[in-house]
Amino acid sequence: MATTDDQPILAISDELVGDVRVLRCVGEIDMASAPGLRERIAGHQVDGPPHLVLDLTGVTFIDSLGLGALIGAHKRARVLQGSLLMVPSDATRRVLTATALDRVFELRPTLAAALPTG
């Protein structure tokens, strides 16, 4: 994990909620942290349940490499016949809207809205 002054740039935690894997990201998704995020997501998509939710509400910055990691995850979910939902922060939502990726990704306003009911 990339660090600045021994502080992680991006902290990633995960938990299984029913048959859905939730990855929570806090910090910045940039050229230093995107490769680790890409690897973590891919590992869960290939070896875990087919349904994944990315909780990006703690993300304060995302660059083009970060967007590339998300696009790769989206494509992988389709190939594996799984699903990928995202709960963006305000900062992430602005970038997704500016790049029209808000029309590509399945976005939810809250984590509760991204999880299956019942």
Results as ranks from 00 to 15, higher is better:
T60L: 12
A32F: 12
P88L: 06
I9W: 03
R24H: 14
I62E: 02
L101I: 03
T4G: 11
H74W: 15
P35Y: 02
H74D: 13
P109K: 03
P49N: 13
R40K: 12
H51N: 14
R94W: 05
A34Y: 01
G68W: 01
L16H: 09
V17R: 14
L80D: 06
M1I: 06
V53R: 00
I62K: 03
P116R: 05
E15V: 14
M86F: 10
T97I: 10
E106Y: 12
T92Y: 02
P116C: 05
R40F: 12
G66M: 03
Q45T: 13
T57Y: 04
F61K: 04
D5K: 10
E15D: 15
D19F: 07
T3Q: 10
R103D: 13
H51L: 09
T4E: 15
F105R: 00
G66Q: 05
P116T: 06
A91M: 07
V53Q: 00
A73K: 00
L65H: 09
H44E: 11
R40G: 08
T92V: 15
Q45M: 15
L54F: 01
V53K: 01
G72V: 05
G43V: 02
L67N: 06
G82H: 02
V104Y: 08
M86L: 15
L80S: 05
G66D: 03
P50M: 03
L37I: 08
P35E: 04
V17T: 15
L107N: 02
Q81N: 15
L70V: 00
V59L: 07
V59Y: 04
G27F: 01
Q81V: 12
E39V: 07
I29K: 01
L111R: 03
T3Y: 14
V22Y: 02
A98H: 09
L37S: 02
D14P: 06
D19I: 08
A32N: 08
G48Q: 03
A98Y: 11
G48M: 01
G36D: 13
